[in-house]
Write a protein that binds this DNA or RNA. Sequence first.
DNA 1: ATTCCACCGGAATAGCGGGATA
DNA 2: TATCCCGCTATTCCGGTGGAAT
Length: 364
Amino acid sequence: MIVDGRVLREDFVPSEVVHRHDEVNLLSESLEPLLYDRRPDPAFLFGPTGVGKTCIARYTLSQLREQEPSVAVAYVNCWQEYTRFRVLYSLLESIDRTVGVHRSTPKDELFGRLADADDRPIVAILDEVDQLEETAALYDLHRLGHVSLVLIANREEELFASFDDRVRSRLRAGTRVQFDRYGTDELVAILAERASQGLEPGSITEDQLRTIADAASGDARVGIGILRSAARRADRNGDESITDEVVAAAIPDAQSAIRRKTVEGLIEHQRVLYDVIAEAGEIEPGDLYAEYERRVADPKTKRTLRNYLTKMVHYDLIEAEGKRRGRTYQPVGDDDDDDDEDGEEGGEKAGDPGADGADGIDRD
DNA sequence: ATTCCACCGGAATAGCGGGATA
DNA sequence: TATCCCGCTATTCCGGTGGAAT
C-alpha cells in the first residue's frame, strides 16, 4: 500500500506547498536581497506546533537556491544544538569547513572560520530558537555580514524575553511571518496530497482523511503521523485499503508514539524518575527523591534531579503543578493507550520536534 | 504575625572525556 | 605516552519564596 514512505514523514518537504502561499511569499520577499548580493534582515516565523513553519522555511530556501545556487543553507535545530559551539559548528558543517574542528579547538576558532568563509552567503535557519541557551550565538551570527538569519519559534514575546539586551536590539528589525492553525479543510488537503504521493491510489477515502484531520486539530505533524501509522497498520494486515477501524486505532498511536520515543531517549536516571512519577500518578518532590534514591544504585544529587525534571517538563513528559513548596509532579497524558504496536522500524528518526519535542532528550 | 523550612533555580566550580600536540 | 585544552555534565553553594507551623 505504501508507495513512498518518505512522503509520510513529518520532515518531508513537498515540492509544492499547500495552503501557505502567502507565508512563502512573505518569506521569499524578505530574502530577496540575497539575489542582489545584499544581506536581508532577519526573518521570524512564529506559530504553534505543526503549522508548517519548518517546512515552509526549508521549502522557501530550496526555491531560493534554485535561483541562486551559491547561497548555502544551514538548518539548525536548537533543541539539539543549544550551545554556541554547536550552532557555529552546524553552520560550518553546511559549508564543509569542519575538517580539523574538535572539542579542543580554541574558543573563537569556529567563529573565525565562519568569518573567513565569506565568499558566499549563508542562510541559517534556526529552528526552535527559543531553546537556544546561549543567545550570544545569535549576536555572533548577526555580526557576520554574510550570514542571514531565519528564526523559528512559537511566540514572539517569549522569544524576545529570552534574549539579552544586545541581541534584542539587534534583532528588533526584521520580517515577521505569523502562522495560524490549519483549518480542517486545509489539513484534509495536505493529507490528501501526501496520501496521493505516498500511497496506492484509493487507499484512503476523503471521509477518513477528514476524521484524521479532525483528530489532529490543526496540527499537520500529528495528522501526518496518524496517516502514516494507519498506512502501516493496513500494510501489516495486508489490507487493500485503509479501514475505518484502522484509522480509529491509529489515532492514539500518533501521540503515544512520540511519547514512547521520547521516553526511550531518556538516560537511566531520568527514566527512573519518570517511572516513579508514572506509577504514582501524582507525587510530591520529597517522596519522589526518596523513592528515586531507593531504586537507584548510585543516586544523583537533588539539584541534578531538579534539572532532569525541568527538562522532562520541557519535553512534555511530565507536568509540574505549583511553583514552590507544595509542588507535585504528574505524568502527562496519564492513562489511556497501551495497545502498543510499535511498528517503528529501525533507521527511523523523528523529524524535528515541535515545541513539544520529540527526540534527543539525552545529551551525552 | 512571625518564624520555619521544603523546594526551586541561578551562578560558580569541579571533574570527565577525548582529540590534539609534543 | 603524557599533557594541554575545552565543551559539557553534575555538583556545590546559596538566595528567594510561599505554604505550614507556631
